[in-house]
């Protein structure tokens, strides 16, 4: 009954496609239920149309300690509108099936409350690819490791610039799909310049695992996406996309603005392919499918 999980995860084909085009993948984050349930679906479709390779659907949570003001505000609005866990799963179902894998990014308690096994089953049924869990280190993730195996889901854990080599090993051993490297010490939010800590962290991770490494936190425009694409297997963008929806007068204009930013970001990761990676002397993008 368990689906057949590719050893390298449900996201592997998306990473492989990017790699075959000689570029890094682009991962776009938007929360479900914001600015409205349908608006979130439209905005996610707009970023897929623009060329995002992987989608992260955020599950709005009351106490998002890893998030800065932008994502906090979006979560507050989504929750005030009555967004429920089942609505998040419905959002996944509405955007899955376009050959772009859809992961859910969630704090742990809503999953635990829903039931870890039940959540895994319903996420798989909705066509979801897996979970990113920012406040669940692998050490306390036993139930989720079992449920994700049973239902064929990817599981993405995070490392940060403060992680020791021993922690990187623990996290890498638990991940399936890719590994999420937080580029800066801090919460989510667009920043003026990508951090200097990020390339160092990516190098350290690559020395210890063959998993693709995605870099997030702080990327806000095409130029920054190109820079990060120069040293990482994937570039994750969240707050900057959310900001477009927050600043828009109407849902439709917000969705259009998300599409334009996603266009710019997609061009950014494509412009980095040969240029910046070679210039910076960092390792070229490697095969994403490494565990076959």
């Amino acid at each position: 009954m368990p689906d057949v999980v590719p050893a390298a995860g449900n996201v592997a084909p998306a990473f492989e496609r990017a790699r075959s085009e000689g570029r890094s993948a682009l991962v776009g984050y938007l929360p479900a239920g914001f600015p409205t349930a349908d608006g979130a679906v439209d905005a996610i479709h707009a970023m897929i149309d623009a060329g995002v390779d992987v989608v992260e659907v955020g599950l709005p949570y009351s106490d998002p300690v890893m998030d800065g003001p932008t994502v906090q505000r979006a979560a507050e609005i989504a929750l005030d509108r009555g967004t429920k866990t089942r609505d998040v799963l419905a959002t996944v179902a509405a955007v899955a099936g376009r050959s772009v894998p859809v992961l859910v990014m969630t704090y742990w308690n809503p999953v635990e409350r829903y039931g870890v096994e039940r959540f895994a089953r319903d996420l798989a049924d909705a066509g979801g690819a897996g979970l990113i869990t920012p406040d669940l280190p692998p050490d306390d993730a036993g139930d989720w490791l079992a449920a994700s195996d049973q239902h064929g889901l990817d599981r993405v854990f995070l490392v940060s610039p403060s992680s020791t080599d021993a922690r990187i090993d623990i996290v890498a051993a638990a991940c399936r799909g890719f590994l999420y490297a937080t580029a800066v010490m801090g919460v989510t939010g667009a920043r003026g310049a990508p951090s200097a800590a990020a390339p160092v962290l990516v190098q350290r991770v690559r020395a210890r695992t063959d998993l693709p490494v995605a870099v997030g936190l702080g990327v806000s425009d095409g130029a920054q996406a190109a820079t990060v694409a120069g040293f990482a297997d994937a570039v994750i963008v969240g707050s900057a996309l959310v900001r477009r929806l927050l600043d828009a007068d109407t849902v439709a204009s917000g969705v259009a603005a998300v599409g334009r930013l996603a266009d710019e970001l997609a061009a950014g990761v494509r412009s980095a392919g040969e240029g910046s990676a070679d210039r910076s002397g960092t390792p070229p993008a490697r095969s994403a499918v490494v565990q076959a």
Binding site: F157, S160, S162, T182
Partner: peptide, 20 residues
């Protein structure tokens, strides 16, 4: 050693805080 009192306790934090 991991801070568990039976099924309670543990560490549910961003990985950035684990070393600290």
């Amino acid at each position: 050693d991991f801070g568990h009192f039976g099924r309670y306790g543990g560490r549910f934090v961003p990985e950035a805080l684990v070393p600290a």
